[in-house]
Amino acid sequence: MRAELAPSTAYDDLPYTRGGDVDRADVGALVQSAVDGDAAAWKALVEGLSPLVWSVVRAHRLSDADAHEVYQTVWFRFAQHLGRIREPQKAGSWLASTARHECLKVLKSLRRLTPTDDPQLLDRVSEDRTPEQSLLDSEEAAVESERVRHLWQEFEELGDRCRQLLRILMASPPPSYQEVSAALGIAVGSIGPLRQRCLRRLRARLEARGAV
């Protein structure tokens, strides 16, 4: 786990060109505040890094029930290890790496122990409407909605590597390449070129479909 994070140190000195909304430099400070008992700092960490954890889980194509469980396990472990994490500023990578390993384990345990589908939990999910979803319900947004669905369909039909990489990259706020590296177990240096390829490929699919 740690060994995979090590080779990317050469990039540590470069300023991140990604990671807009939540300044990743603040992550270390938020972790420290949370360790000191600041619940608001913890909440800010959850807000800023939840989409990354969710992206990692989704990128591994777990069932919904497994995805929910792994997501929770990752945050429980993070809370437990808070204050013991050696590089708090890299909490995003820690979470991504933990999520990846837990996903791989769940995929490896061929047969889960019990029926894991909690219908109640999944029902609640379907009732959740984000503001964006509600907006899409309006008639004016029908065309836009169609466009988004086409984009998503073409994304889902990409090869595994591209689909995985793009699912991580599209987390909001955008993850750093360090975090992407931790999420997928690939070298930081390979992410940029792979990203370009995958996005070109997706664009080509969209153009072929005439849904530009």
Binding site: W42, K43, V46, E47, S50, P51, V53, W54, S55, R58, H68, Y71, Q72, W75, L121, R124, V125, D128, T130, E132, Q133, L136, V148, R149, L151, W152, F155, L166, R167, L169, M170, A171, S172, P174, L202
Partner: peptide, 21 residues
């Protein structure tokens, strides 16, 4: 665009976010 699509079609479920909090 993908980021926006993910926010619409596959966001973090609200109750999971709450559990993490």
């Amino acid at each position: 665009e993908l980021r926006r699509a993910a926010g619409i079609l596959d966001p973090v479920p609200a109750q999971l976010r709450q559990i993490a909090v």
